[in-house]
Amino acid sequence: MQGAKPKNKSQITLSQIKEGSACTIAELHLEGLLRRRIMDLGFVPGTAVQCVRKGPTGDPIAYTVRGTTIALRKEDAAKINVFMA
């Protein structure tokens, strides 16, 4: 069963990425306005994203995507699946 979907095996969520490491967007489980907004910022499947820093309590988290830095709240980042680089 597990071997059937090898691509899912290495998927984790964007919020789990450590500071300083990179990943590639796999799929977005966000809805409505937020989904649109985040996609318009360039978080579309296949895009390389790097986690640059976390806020004082680990939230929000700042990512670089397409040469810009965007901060997201942890719960929102947790709804974005990524492949580890």
Binding site: L34, L41, P60, T69, I70, A71, R73, D76
Partner: peptide, 11 residues
């Protein structure tokens, strides 16, 4: 509930 926040940090 708190909704989302998307904030760009410009250079």
């Amino acid at each position: 509930e708190a909704s989302s926040m998307v904030l760009e940090l410009p250079p």
